[in-house]
Amino acid sequence: MNTEELKMAIGDLDEDKVQALLEELSESGAQTAAAALSACQEGMEIVGAKYESGEYFVADLIFAGDLMSDAAAVIKPLLAGEAQEPIGKMAICTVKGDIHDIGKNIVKALLEASGIEAIDLGVDVSPDSIVESVKKSGVKVLALSGVLTLAIDTMKQTISALDAAGLRSEVKVIIGGAAVTAEYCAYVGADAWSLSAAEGINICRNWLKGV
């Protein structure tokens, strides 16, 4: 299987070609599967770049998320111990009072595609639950999503709860979703904000790499 072709097919969101290439993969060994997974991740970076340039938009990211999940479902069983070490792990959720999950799911798919283990806490997640999950998982990066302006207050409460639990200094927090702005970022006390999935992922990746 040609991994370069697979990378480009993912980047071009060419579902037929991706499926055809992955069918060839089932007859290959674990090493090829690992290379295929890397190719898919590189392909998703192309998707992110095309989103940043304005060529792709939300519908494309939804499609890309599904395409990547389908590809991963084929590749991962073939890895047999050849799995890559993730860059790091982080948690992501839509905060209490908000049930929008499409944006959160897009970001999660792109995080995973970029080699980050993303623990999905779900939607409508309370500050207390988030703090518990952060404690339990030991993540140092937390992404809070919200489309409703109501979510802004919950994001603020979540950061206060992290503070009260003595975790705030250890955990970087990024907020995203249609409701967020620079002013709201300052108001809730987050470390960063973004309306762009690709930009948000770069920020998280840099945090996890200690950049």
């Binding site: 939300v58 494309d60 499609f63």
Partner: peptide, 11 residues
């Protein structure tokens, strides 16, 4: 719906 209509644009 939003998700399925988005996918249909390509599928």
């Amino acid at each position: 719906g939003m998700r399925e209509a988005s996918l249909d644009l390509r599928k």
